[in-house]
Nucleic acid binder design. Structure first.
Length: 370
RNA sequence: GGUUGGGUUGUAGAGUGGUCAAAUACAUCAGACUGUAAAUCUGACGCCUCCGGCUUCGAUGGUUCGAAUCCAUCCCCAACCA
């Protein structure tokens, strides 16, 4: 795969965390990286130029959502997702595997695939691994994800085992169906909180990994400590020379904890979602800017933040926008929250270069309350 | 000055003898949010020593076992007529 390459630039002597560079057809991604989520081909409330300004290197989109609307064929006709949404940096599309989990009321899983009822119209669709690859080929993201079965927190061993087996079988079918040299397929490890299943899943899935491997089925409701334990368990077992992508994580504390456990890539809806609901990320934890105590607080969300919102607006103003249901409030908080994560990733990278990530983690978590 | 309608817990607005501390909406306050069915959802919203008690429905007085609801007087508001 000459279009993709991952190079480890440095390994933190203190933590084992890595600095890496992942080359893709749309540019190089420096890891560890936080990837903003733009489910339907837009990071809600944030323009592409703003994403670039705040340091987003790659964004996520979703197979299931774009398949339903506007349709992958339409995106293809537009010239692919990059052109359609005017984003020339790398894109990763999730496979719809997470929707197998989150839309559990609207779907039925079988070995052949997943029967979905559209959450928009109720119309029935059947998504197979092959169909999933076809859609993702049409969308044209740089990194595409295997179609997996994600289990919920509290799933029984049997359920988790069955989901793992299915995920492996589906991966083989995805692999056979994926022919596009400009798209890198990431396999996904499942196994819920069961270490033997995680290990088995990893060993079954790793042979299919060419330039990246993903850890799925975490941060779905289990305690953070349990997630950290699984990451610790997996850390020495990954295949060499490829980035590890922890799917759906996370909050700033989880981001730092995961990088310290060898994770290179993460994505999460949290920063943009809580922004729309009136909450800002700060180094002390979350700040509910909507709260009355900021009514006449004419200072920025964070004094030392370099984002557009902090450089130009006060908490009192943003609170006013949020309370007035003005869309600019959500936009400004989204920019701030995403910048918070990209800035955090920059700080983390610096600490790795300096071989002091564990020190940084301790310092960061000392003040950060979640 | 007259006629009519009306004054209900922040606002609007139900309720017209007991099941009413009083529907509902909005506002307000607080919380949640982790591969986005989320610009969504949850809770609180008279007071208290809160599995119980206390004080409320313009004011005062009355009828009644019992009143936000019925009667009397007064105060205020709106529309219209002079």
């Amino acid at each position: 795969m000459e279009n993709f390459e991952f190079v480890v630039k440095h390994v933190c002597k203190q933590s084992g965390a890595r600095i890496g560079e992942l080359r893709t057809p749309h540019g190089v991604i420096e890891t560890p990286v936080f990837m903003p989520v733009g489910t339907v081909g837009t990071v809600k409330g944030v323009k592409p130029e703003e994403l670039k300004e705040l340091g987003a290197q790659i964004i996520l989109s979703n197979t299931y959502h774009l398949f339903l609307r506007p349709g992958d064929k339409t995106v293809k006709a537009a010239g692919g997702l990059h052109k359609f949404m005017n984003w020339d940096r790398p894109i990763l599309t999730d496979s719809g595997g997470f929707q197998v989990f989150s839309l559990s009321e609207l779907r039925k899983v079988s070995d052949e695939g997943v029967a979905f009822r559209s959450h928009l119209s109720g119309e029935k669709f059947f998504i197979t691994p092959e169909k999933c690859m076809e859609i993702q080929n049409n969308l044209g993201a740089d990194i595409i994800m295997a179609f997996d079965e994600c289990t919920k927190a509290g799933a029984s061993y049997e359920q988790a085992k069955s989901a793992c087996e299915r995920t492996t079988k589906w991966l083989k079918r995805c692999y056979d169906a994926q022919k596009n040299q400009n798209q890198m397929l990431f396999p996904i490890i499942q196994g819920n909180v069961y270490k033997d299943l995680r290990e088995k899943s990893l060993s079954e899935v790793a042979p299919y990994a060419r330039c990246g491997i993903a850890i799925g089925g975490l941060s779905v409701g289990e305690p953070k400590e349990v997630m950290y334990e699984i990451l610790d368990f997996l850390k020495p077992k990954y295949p060499e020379n490829m980035p590890r992508y922890l799917m759906g994580v996370g909050s700033p504390d989880c981001f730092v904890e995961a990088v310290a456990r060898g994770v290179d890539m993460m994505d999460c809806v949290l920063p943009t979602r809580i922004a729309r609901n009136g909450t800002a990320l700060t180094k002390r934890g979350k700040m509910i800017v909507r709260n009355a105590c900021y009514k006449e607080d004419f200072t920025p969300i964070e004094d030392d933040c370099d984002c557009y919102a902090c450089k130009n607006f006060t908490k009192a103003y943003i609170r006013h926008l949020i309370c007035s249901d003005e869309m600019l409030g959500a936009q400004l908080l989204s920019i701030h929250n995403l910048r918070f994560l990209t800035r955090l990733s920059e700080q983390v990278k610096k600490a790795i270069w300096e071989d002091r990530l564990l020190d940084f983690k301790e310092e960061f978590l000392k003040d950060f309350k979640w």
